[in-house]
Simulated assay, not measured.
Amino acid sequence: MAVVADGFWPAKLGRDALTIEWDEGPTAAVSSGGITKTFDALTQQPGPVARHEGDAAAALTSAAKRLDAVYEVPYLAHATMEPMTCTAHVRPDGCDIWTGTQWQDGTQGVAAKITGLPAASIRVHTTLLGGGFGRRFEQDFVAEAVAIAKAVGAPVKLVWSREDDMQHDFYRPSTFNRLSAGIDAQGSLVAWTHRIISPSIAARAFPALIKDGIDGTSIEGAANIPYTIPNIHVECTMKETGVPVGFWRSVGSSQNAFITECFLDEIAAAAGKDPYELRRYWSWPRSRRAGDGRSRRAAIAASPSPSRSEAGLPRLPKSRSAPPARFASIESSARWTVGSSSIPIPSKPRWRAVSSTA
């Protein structure tokens, strides 16, 4: 159902005046609480194995200390700077489309399917994105514009409201993660297990990416954490919920970096280790290079001490410093250290952030 007018505001007012009774379909009863309950139950069962090295189960049993944690992340909308927009002009001899798209072939293909025209007759004029982040890989807004333009028989400019944009996204998946770590008597990390429950992006977008029951996008940043741990076991179970999911900038790494790095901080605290030194000791050689130099100086500057650091920066009080985080994603290693300054500034704390990549 579409409302067409001479401008966006009249069209919106016309749509708002409609009284529509929708069939909410089979997912009408889906809720955040229900999804969490389902995901939690699935973490109690074994799933497809994404990585297995050593014997994590035995190492956990024999470890001097065991640490267990659960991390859950919600569905996230892309919230691009501009909501979805597309202009389409359908004619008997061709179709022109003006839109910000991250997948021109997909735009051309969906237009050809709706219009019945050959792909060679579909011209895609790529505009500035207005923010993509994976959202404009999808073609739902393009399909709407083309279908309306075909029905009207005139050029149509489709503009989603921000409310439409947030409610009808292809969201970053919500995931439920159960992690365990084993620490020996010397405070060394000897075992790591990570069980992930997540909807699959690839199942809809690129089914060929699913190998051995695992969506590779779901384990990015989890199966390839940049640390050498002697016993590691990672599993991932795909579970659909009816909520549409899609590529969200950096895809699986966006949530898995948060999950694994926060858990490492928990491990460091339980082991009585400095978070920086723990990461540096267990890091891959390439990632370790990313952690040296500027990032190391930043980590020193962020450590609690009233004196100045060897980096030449005033050290930050413990309550205002954050341990460094290191991560590997898309063939790169990165490290961030963030802390706030003790220099008083009225109503504005001063933040210092240092990053390095390799």
Rank of each mutant, 00 (worst) to 15 (best):
S340F: 10
D265N: 13
V90N: 02
F258P: 00
G339R: 03
G100N: 13
R308A: 09
A301V: 07
F258Q: 08
P323Y: 04
H89C: 12
I148T: 15
G216A: 11
V156Q: 07
T43S: 13
V49T: 10
Q139V: 15
T87K: 06
L128D: 12
Q108H: 03
L179P: 04
K65Q: 13
V234S: 08
S174C: 05
T19G: 08
D40N: 03
S188W: 13
Q44I: 09
Y227G: 00
E163Q: 12
G106C: 05
E138C: 05
P26T: 02
A11G: 04
K211D: 02
A56K: 02
A63S: 08
R288H: 08
T101Y: 07
P244Q: 00
T85L: 06
A269N: 02
H194Q: 02
H168W: 14
A311R: 07
E310M: 05
E331L: 15
G246N: 03
H233A: 06
I225R: 04
V245F: 00
C95V: 00
A269D: 14
V73H: 14
G109K: 12
E138Q: 07
P207S: 04
A77Q: 05
F141H: 15
D16M: 11
R308W: 14
V338W: 02
G14W: 09
S121E: 09
P48R: 01
I20F: 09
A185I: 10
G216N: 04
